[in-house]
């Protein structure tokens, strides 16, 4: 338990009061909110205290207490043995009313290699859900399954179901283009098109058929503002997007995703290639976005998962090992493997 405590404190450091980060309105507002509220024992950079209190209540109401999870496995259990369990303790009770994305018995194959094994989880609406786990555990494959980005890989095959608002993403009548308009995605490596900043953000709108210049201007300004980039680029909207810095490019990609007004934003390690300052900007952004969007984020950085997410799912070797409140995963994991991973004993 001691190690976990220390890790939590580590987590607080990178996004603490960093003088080199220029203040912004959004940041100030939620800081004020954070400071106005009483703190809990653990010092965390984002207003987790607020979040946790509110969310715990909501979740306790919506989701009955985790079932068999309480039977915590004996120490020194072999990991392979744990994996043979058919029912991970992550199984929550009946489907929550709030579930935006609902995944059941989802398997995924690349050719004959099975990379996801019977994933079951419900992702709540307007919350941040983090997916963590060691490299190759299937978390990227999983997040890319939600908007069917894996369709472009030859020989990839899925079974089981993923539903968004009750509609099956892989169903026969599902339209992948419409799906991707509803489910935006931000990639690990920022991928602005070799066009101007304006045209990058306008891309999704234009393919949707929008031609009205004034409307475009308006949405582009709003999207860039939401992505906390407007003030940095408003004077050079028609300059090449490739001239922006790495962090700016990533925020541009976020703005581009937001412009088409998706319901869900998937982020596949959005900050892994960025420096700490750019990372903290992206994290603040994620925190602010969850008022309007359901966010799923893959991250290798456990402190980041702890800072930005409401719920965390721990994946290993293609299986969902544990899925619970972020607080629970980090402070009081039910599974030995989760504890080993979040305390840095492996992975």
């Amino acid at each position: 338990m001691m190690t976990i405590e220390m890790r939590r404190r580590d987590a607080a450091e990178p996004a603490g009061e960093d003088a080199s980060v220029p203040p912004r309105a959004g940041r100030a507002s939620f800081r004020a909110e954070r400071d106005a509220l009483p703190r809990t024992g653990v010092d965390v950079p984002f207003p987790d205290a607020v979040r946790r209190e509110r969310d715990d209540a909501e979740w306790n109401a919506a989701v009955p207490a985790a079932g068999p999870a309480a039977s915590s496995p004996p120490q020194n259990t072999n990991h392979a043995q744990l994996l043979t369990r058919t029912q991970p303790s992550a199984q929550e009770g009946p489907m929550s009313q709030e579930a935006k994305i609902s995944v059941s018995n989802f398997d995924f194959y690349y050719g004959t290699a099975k990379v996801l094994h019977g994933i079951n989880l419900d992702i709540p609406d307007r919350k941040v859900t983090a997916l963590i786990g060691p490299s190759g555990c299937g978390k990227s494959t999983f997040i890319r399954s939600i908007n069917r980005m894996n369709d472009i890989i030859p020989d990839a095959r899925a079974s089981g179901s993923i539903t968004i608002d009750g509609q099956d993403v892989y169903g026969g009548d599902a339209d992948v283009v419409e799906l991707r308009r509803r489910v935006g995605m931000v990639f690990q490596k920022s991928n602005p098109f070799p066009k101007s900043i304006y045209d990058n953000v306008a891309y999704g709108l234009r393919i949707g058929g929008m031609r009205n210049k004034r409307q475009l201007d308006e949405i582009i300004e709003r999207s860039l503002t939401r992505a906390a980039l407007w003030h940095e680029v408003k004077d050079r909207l028609h300059a090449s997007a490739l001239a922006l810095s790495g962090g700016q490019q990533q925020r541009l990609c976020i703005a581009r995703a937001l412009a088409v007004d998706p319901e869900i934003v998937l982020m596949d390690e959005p900050a892994s290639a960025l420096d700490p300052i750019a990372t903290s900007k992206i994290e603040e952004l994620i925190y602010e976005l969850k008022d309007n969007y359901t966010i799923v984020i893959v991250t290798h950085n456990m402190q980041q998962a702890a800072r930005v997410s409401d719920r965390t799912a721990f994946f290993m070797l293609g299986r969902l090992i544990e899925y619970a409140e972020t607080n629970e995963i980090f402070m009081n994991p039910k599974e030995k493997m989760t504890e080993d991973y979040v305390t840095g004993r492996f992975g």
């Binding site: 908007n147 283009v177 308009r181 990639f187 991928n191 602005p192 891309y203 393919i207 581009r256």
Partner: peptide
């Protein structure tokens, strides 16, 4: 490949 993915992820055919 990221450019292709970026376009497809925005709902491009």
């Amino acid at each position: 490949g990221g450019l292709r993915e970026g376009a497809l992820a925005l709902g491009a055919t």
